[in-house]
């Protein structure tokens, strides 16, 4: 945990510093008449101090066991793939409409763990897309974007 805590505490220190600076820009006001940045200034100030404490704590702790690697040996590529898919989906939904983009997304997601059964992947993607479309759009009146093709 040592290296992890050191890294994360430095990250939070960075966050707190930038929030601190922005809070001052927004106007802190006085204790009698706090401004827009008053609370965030306080919060980021304490966050900064606490992350320093965390950093010191982590650095002073003697750790004999070697920490488990964060990413190595794990299937982090899968996670990245899912994240990219989700971002693409959000990007494409207004253009392609709910039906097409959802079908593509579901195909991608099912494919991750079912690479061999392509037909099954296609069929279940079509099924889920159509069922959710009817349940949410037709029945519950959700308002999905129509997209270029009006689908």
């Amino acid at each position: 945990m040592r290296a992890l805590d050191q890294t994360s505490s430095l990250f939070w220190l960075l966050v707190s510093l930038s929030v601190f600076v922005e809070s001052i820009r927004l106007g802190v006001g006085t204790p009698q008449n706090p401004g827009m940045g008053f609370l965030t200034l306080g919060a980021s100030g304490i966050l900064g101090i606490l992350s320093l404490i965390l950093f010191l704590q982590a650095s002073l702790k003697k750790e004999k066991i070697k920490a488990e690697p964060l990413f190595a040996g794990k299937l982090w590529r899968r996670v990245l793939f899912v994240l990219v898919l989700l971002i693409l989906y959000s990007r494409m939904m207004p253009v392609l409409g709910y039906l097409i983009s959802t079908f593509l997304l579901m195909t991608g997601l099912f494919w991750i763990l079912e690479r061999k059964r392509i037909v099954w992947v296609f069929l279940s993607s079509i099924m889920t897309t159509l069922i959710t479309y009817f349940v949410f759009s037709k029945w519950l009146n959700c308002q999905f974007p129509d997209g270029l093709f009006g689908l």
Binding site: I100, I118, V119, F122, L148, F149, G150, L151
Partner: peptide, 18 residues
């Protein structure tokens, strides 16, 4: 090929709708 065919149909329909 099956997937490709489906794509073609969808594309065609889309163009028609446009």
């Amino acid at each position: 090929q099956k997937g490709w065919k489906a794509g073609k149909i969808i594309l065609g329909c889309g163009l028609l709708l446009m």
